[in-house]
Each structure stands twice: as C-alpha cells, then as structure tokens.
Simulated scan of single mutants.
Amino acid sequence: MRKILYSLFSIIFTLLVISCDDAVLPKPKAYLSLEYPDKEYKKLEVSRPYSFDVLESTKIIDETNNWLKITYPNLKASIDITYRPVENNLKELLTEAEKLVFKHAVKAEQIVPKDFVNPNKRVFGSLYEITGNAASHLQFHATDSTTHFIKGSLYFYAKPNYDSILPAVDYIKKDVLKLVETLDWKPL
C-alpha cells in the first residue's frame, strides 16, 4: 500500500512540476485605435449674418434666430452655435457667455482659456477647453464688437467620460479653430 501511495504521490508531484513550467504574465494594456476621416472643409451653405468653413462630413441643422447645430453623426456630438446681434449689450453678452463656461466648473478639472484676435476680419473672441467629466468640453465666443456675437458649445450625446472622448474632442477642436480662423461677418 505504501508503495502505491508513494508512486501516486510521485506521479502527482511530477505532473505539478511539469504543468507549472510557464510563468503567468498579466495581459498587456490595450490601446484604443481610432481612425478619423481626413478633413476637407467647405463654406457654410446656410445664409446667416456670419460665414465660416465647416467639415464636409458634418451635418448642418438650420435653427431659428440664425442659430445652427453642426452635428458629427459618427461621433455622436454636435457644436451648438447661437447668434445674437450686439445692440449696446456687448458686456452683457460676454458675461453671459462666460457664465455658461464656468457653470461647468463643478465637474471640470480645469478650464483653459485661449483668446484670439484678428483685427483685419474684426474677429475677437475666446476658446475655453474644459477638462474633466463636464457636459461640454469646448466652448467659444466671437464678436466684431459692434454688430455680431456668436457662441458655440461642443456636446456629446453620451455620459461624459473625459478619458474616453478625449480623442474626439481633439479632432473636433481642430474644426472649431478652423471655424474661428475662417469666420467672416456679413452686413445686417
């Protein structure tokens, strides 16, 4: 009996030693592989008191009061643009735009402003990058300081998770910068 137990123990021990040959390794980290289409722009085709270049693959939704919604169907995002004429109320419009930006301070980790000035085209404004799990990650406003004022906000139609949507925010940020660079005001 002892001989059988010894043989059985030897076989089990040998199998354990042989089967534990490979070390267990953790899985390597996975990296998100996102591919976005190349950017081609066209002039805004909707008649407004302003004009700018938009990405060809976006869909423009015409809204009342010279407002627009630029949608990114594949990214489930939109840039909502509001327009208001300046009627001796520029300070009020600027204050309102900044209030909307800083409403996100509760969820934001950081709000980084960037001013832009193009005196030749009379375009003056600011772009705000909002990091963290806020509802809007980019907001901007622009004015000619006498007649026109627009405000834009980027929204995603998903629960805000900044780490997940950061590549899409960076992709759309380039479109917002192109919008501001090509912004032209039309006479009222």
Rank of each mutant, 00 (worst) to 15 (best):
N120Y: 06
N120T: 09
N120S: 07
K121N: 12
K121Q: 13
K121S: 09
R122M: 12
R122G: 08
R122V: 01
R122E: 14
R122K: 15
R122F: 06
V123D: 11
V123K: 05
V123S: 04
V123L: 05
V123A: 11
V123P: 09
F124H: 13
F124W: 11
F124Y: 15
G125F: 06
G125K: 05
G125D: 04
G125M: 08
S126W: 10
S126M: 09
S126E: 14
S126F: 03
L127G: 01
L127I: 13
L127W: 01
Y128W: 05
Y128N: 01
Y128I: 01
E129H: 13
E129G: 10
E129Y: 12
E129P: 00
I130W: 11
I130L: 13
T131W: 03
T131H: 10
T131F: 10
G132T: 00
G132Y: 08
N133C: 05
A134W: 00
A134D: 00
A134K: 02
A134N: 00
A134C: 00
A135Y: 05
A135L: 15
A135M: 05
S136T: 12
S136W: 09
S136I: 09
S136Y: 09
H137F: 07
H137D: 09
H137A: 09
H137V: 00
L138R: 03
L138N: 04
L138M: 00
L138D: 01
Q139V: 07
Q139L: 15
Q139C: 06
Q139S: 06
Q139H: 07
Q139A: 13
F140K: 02
F140V: 09
F140H: 11
F140W: 08
F140E: 09
H141V: 12
H141F: 15
H141T: 09
H141W: 15
H141Q: 15
A142K: 08
A142S: 12
T143M: 03
T143S: 10
T143E: 05
T143I: 03
D144R: 02
D144F: 01
D144V: 04
D144N: 11
D144Q: 04
D144H: 03
D144T: 04
S145F: 06
S145T: 14
S145R: 14
S145D: 05
S145V: 13
T146V: 13
T146S: 13
T146E: 15
T146C: 03
T147I: 07
T147N: 11
T147V: 06
T147H: 15
H148P: 04
H148F: 06
H148S: 04
F149N: 03
F149G: 08
F149A: 10
F149W: 07
F149T: 08
